[in-house]
Write a protein that binds this DNA or RNA. Structure first.
Lengths: 242, 242
DNA sequence: CGAGCTTTTGAAGAACGTCAAGAGTTGTGG
DNA sequence: CCACAACTCTTGACGTTCTTCAAAAGCTCG
């Protein structure tokens, strides 16, 4: 079984237990693996993919490009995320997907996903759940951009990254790799690069986070959550029949 | 068959054709109808509904309430929207749903939706699609708040409302009912009430829109789209096998 | 070592929020 | 049918936040 599929199983498994048959079915999916260098747009807006992609390693983001040359990154994805499952139902992309760091990505055929909806209803609901959790994350992002200060947005992003990375085993002693430039952060937070830089400095000066190069170390997660008004409820991190 | 279910069929039917059997299945769903006065929160954050709601008449919105007493409205819903289908997979609400105008709402049991996923895979994919289109709308909203001017946000909101209301037959001669206060608009656009008011006046002064009381009349949709950088692609308004 | 990125700093101006108050509108009860 | 209360919309003044522009400093990779 491909390691990316194992991450997906771990990801889904934090929301409901999967049967042996379901795990076997996921393991039997034919996958195509690709690697992309940093900055590469590997799924284009308006394209009609016949495969959905699952992030194996690295960071990727959904991007909405605007006519005036700027862009908004609307979501950040981590290993184990079934990034482009939305494309399975949407057919035509309304956004693009870019590699924030070097990425290794695994593709699954839509035709195989369709079979899952026909023969494995519970597993299909789990994949559906994966897209609705993405939507819940997107809602939180909307609220952050609409009604939160830059410092809260940045802190919230780190709280969320910390929490999600932990579920796939990519946090140790509060530390995790977070290879993203401040220009990309700016596109995520809806700020200018200059103000993003000042916000990063503000956050550093709280002492709750150490951030050197691409390594982030959260030294006081509890207080960072309070500062950022972060509450993990929306991530649905509990096991329950779905 | 309940009129709200007919609206849903019309809504889904703009994305793929439904078979007679699927329509019959939707028509056979047991529904519970409720009416709510303007301003009422009828699904609470953190609640665990066992029913999903479908908007029949009126406007409703998803709301994320913030600790400091403000809120962000993250989505606006119109008749025919299966507003709380997200709750079917999420189980516990990450946001609340409020009536923007007086609303009539129809509820469907999660247990019946579960049966659809087990016995009607294509219809289930259509419901899944409904939630991923919601997610696409949410992405657009995120981009609006992050990288668009207040005038573009407001214009885009009207373009989207116009387009979506048209698919359920609620626009005639460019006119539609849009019963929302400027305070609620402010919570949607991520602005203060004062600035929202000035933005509404800016939009009126373009002459592209007439907006008196709760009636909006778009006098030049094409130019309003260009002003707002609106492109309906993300609404998935074409029929295609899904 | 040097080119090209990334981060950082300063200064000036535009955009947006807040506060305060007046004008208009709607709904209700006498 | 009118009067009043409560909400909604509008305007002005002022302060803060954030962007833009420009440039320097630091870092990375050939």
């Amino acid at each position: 079984m491909h390691a990316a599929i194992q991450l997906l199983i771990r990801n889904l498994g934090t929301r409901d237990s999967l049967s042996a048959g379901e795990i076997e079915l996921l393991g039997s999916l034919q996958v195509r693996e690709e690697s992309y260098e940093r900055g590469r747009t590997f799924i284009a807006e308006r394209s009609r993919p016949e495969w959905s992609c699952l992030l194996h390693t690295g960071l990727s983001a959904r991007a909405v490009d605007l006519p005036n040359g700027t862009r908004q990154l609307t979501a950040l994805h981590i290993p184990g995320d079934f990034v482009d499952l939305h494309g399975f139902t949407l057919k035509r992309m309304d956004h693009s997907v870019v590699a924030i760091s070097a990425c290794s990505v695994v593709f699954v055929r839509h035709s195989e996903l369709k079979v899952i909806t026909e023969r494995a209803a519970h597993l299909a609901r789990m994949l559906w759940l994966s897209t609705t959790i993405d939507a819940a994350i997107q809602r939180r992002m909307t609220a952050l951009l609409g009604r939160h200060t830059p410092l809260e947005r940045l802190g919230h992003l780190l709280c969320e990254a910390h929490t999600r990375l932990e579920t796939v085993g990519l946090v140790s002693e509060g530390k995790f790799q977070f290879p993203i430039t401040q220009a990309e952060l700016a596109d995520l937070l809806g700020l200018s690069v200059v103000h993003t830089n000042r916000t990063v400095q503000d956050l550093r000066s709280t002492g709750l986070v150490k951030w050197l190069g691409s390594e982030v170390s959260v030294t006081d997660f509890e207080r960072l959550c309070r500062l950022s008004r972060f509450d993990a409820n929306y991530l649905n991190l509990w096991v329950e029949p779905r």
